[in-house]
């Protein structure tokens, strides 16, 4: 069952130096109990996409397209209706757990504030109960509700953030680089928490990350973004075992791996195009080893192959 669907999402930032087309024509969906990974390098528009779903973008961003949740387009919701939806139906956790918690508020007050925002008459015992359950489900003792954020380590703070995100049992959790500022060992623990949640809480997760390894371990399907566009969209098995888009292929090869017999350093030559000044045709053409004439003339559309989608002229039939 499709839980949340994004259709033809376009996001433009108006800046003093012109308009930046940060996300172009992105479409994807996530089912119940599934995790969708959005991967890409910095500046590819993955966080912008995630934030746009909850309408958290700054005022200079123009959003166009549809975000369908529960049968209606939430981009058309009033601000008040949107406020009620945030945290309760769709919630988000951010990359940096240090700046996401208020340093002078106890952990319990973070929970109380959240619960009261959706139910002003909530009683204290009731709220404590909810907060304790959420904390315990991510592996933090409920005794720590009365602590301040500084009394937690980075990994524990990220657990608290996840607990806040799931307190009101949302049906979609957007996790924006939840493990990027953490060490690998702690990252492994947090990914374990996310995997468990998907099963026990009946929830969809949209996982935004630059780490292809993390997506392979946690996600069911993956969206690969490059320079503001979705270039490939497939289930995780196909995406990793048989990547179609040249960018996905090269990106997968350039991840440093731990196989000791593979000592060759591979990389993608060149760099990302300037989003203010997009060249004609395919956005990856300057770095692509399979470039053809048509690539610099016309921008490739999405080609559908079985259940998969890829934006590349190589698959034009």
């Amino acid at each position: 069952m499709i839980n949340l669907e994004v259709k033809n999402l376009n996001i433009k930032y108006r800046t003093r130096n012109g308009t930046v087309h940060a996300v172009k024509d992105a479409s994807f969906f996530v089912r119940k109990k599934e995790t969708l990974g959005i991967v890409g390098e910095s500046g590819c528009g993955k966080s912008t996409t995630g934030h746009a779903v909850l309408r958290l973008l700054p005022p200079n961003a123009l959003t166009d397209g549809e975000v369908v949740y529960n049968g209606s387009n939430i981009l058309k919701y009033s601000n008040e209706k949107m406020r009620q939806l945030r945290g309760k139906d769709i919630s988000i956790i951010f990359q940096d757990p240090m700046t996401s918690l208020d340093p002078i508020m106890r952990i319990r007050d973070h929970f109380f504030e959240l619960i009261r925002a959706h139910n002003p008459k909530a009683k204290e015992e009731e709220m404590r109960e909810m907060a304790s359950n959420a904390l315990e489900s991510v592996g933090v003792s409920a005794k720590r509700l009365d602590n301040y954020p500084f009394e937690f380590s980075g990994g524990m703070r990220q657990r608290v953030m996840i607990a806040l995100g799931i307190t009101l049992k949302p049906s979609v959790l957007i996790a924006d680089e939840p493990t990027t500022s953490l060490d690998v060992v702690v990252q492994e623990q947090i990914m374990g928490v996310l995997k468990d949640l998907k099963q026990t809480q009946d929830m969809s997760i949209i996982l935004i990350t630059h780490d292809l390894g993390v997506v392979a371990e946690v996600a069911d399907s993956g969206v690969v973004m490059y320079a503001g566009e979705v270039v490939e969209y497939a289930d995780v098995q196909n995406l990793y075992n048989n990547p179609l888009h040249p960018y996905t292929q090269l990106l997968l090869k350039s991840v440093p791996n731990i196989k000791i017999d593979d000592m060759e350093l591979r990389y993608i030559p060149g760099s990302l195009p300037d989003l203010k000044n997009i060249p004609q045709g395919c956005r990856f053409k300057d770095r692509c080893p399979f470039v053809k004439d048509i690539c610099s003339k016309k921008e490739p559309p999405i080609f559908k192959i079985d259940e998969r989608e890829v934006r590349c002229w190589l698959y034009d039939k």
Binding site: E188, G213, Y240
Partner: peptide, 25 residues
Amino acid sequence: KILMSSIPVPDPNFKKEKIIPKGEI
């Protein structure tokens, strides 16, 4: 060994022996 086993591998079929330590540093 723990450090080795916690590096995410970009391969959904890679079955690694996971050793997860208790707590944090």
